[in-house]
Design a binder for these strands. Structure first.
Lengths: 117, 117
DNA sequence: GAATCATATGTCCATATCGGAATATGTCAA
DNA sequence: TTGACATATTCCGATATGGACATATGATTC
């Protein structure tokens, strides 16, 4: 098996920075492809491809407006990500004041210091 | 260019479900590889490879303990993800009470309803 | 030193990616 | 109809994946 498809879920879709940029732009409101192409300074086909991925994961919705296609953000699939990460919030917020942990870390630093074995 | 490496950043590292499972397990405390292999019911080399990715992104730290290697969670790199997603929280929390939005959505549903063109 | 346990690395395969270039589809305007 | 504009799709190449399998490295015990 190879790596999971980018369309497998929001996690994979959002792993690509350009796709995050697109969502960031759409967070400011509905926009036609054209507009995104201009702002991202990316080739039009690329933008269309990224939008396809986002569509398949449900992160954006489309609406036809004449010859333009208006894309709109749909953040719902991001909830899964948020729900997962939020449980780790303490892991970077916490103060390391437990003595045993601190000692363990100091010990690691010494060990890793690479004297000539 | 191909897809970004899984070791490019936390976003990519965490896109793989098994890697998330590993972090979830480590959230419960330091664990040797062995332990993870048993709990994940995954081939040992696979677990080692996933751990490598997590290590390269800084999501886990290792410590040698005799012939075992104790892996420990380091959530800090997840902050970037949290910071990004949290701005979208309202996008799935919000009540759709703006009339224009509601109408737009209804219109889309009709349009998409696929009568014969 | 030899055997054993714990972990890491290397090779192979099938698959899917992102990007670029060219081209197809679809809509409006003259 | 013809042409211009907006967007999507297809084909290509380079790359990296996750998994299976075999093997290497490293520490411990006998």
């Amino acid at each position: 098996m190879a790596r999971a498809a980018t369309t497998a879920d929001a996690f994979n879709a959002v792993a690509e920075p350009r796709r995050r940029q697109i969502l960031d732009l759409l967070a400011g409101g509905e926009r036609p492809v054209n507009d995104l192409v201009a702002r991202l300074e990316l080739a039009q086909p690329l933008v269309s491809k990224h939008l396809r991925v986002l569509r398949e994961v449900g992160l954006v919705d489309v609406r036809d407006e004449g010859r333009q296609r208006m894309y709109r953000l749909n953040g719902r699939p991001l909830k899964a990500i948020h729900d997962w990460v939020k449980d780790y919030e303490q892991s970077w917020t916490q103060r390391f004041d437990r003595l045993d942990v601190v000692l363990e870390q100091l010990k690691d630093m010494e060990d890793g210091d690479g004297s000539d074995k």
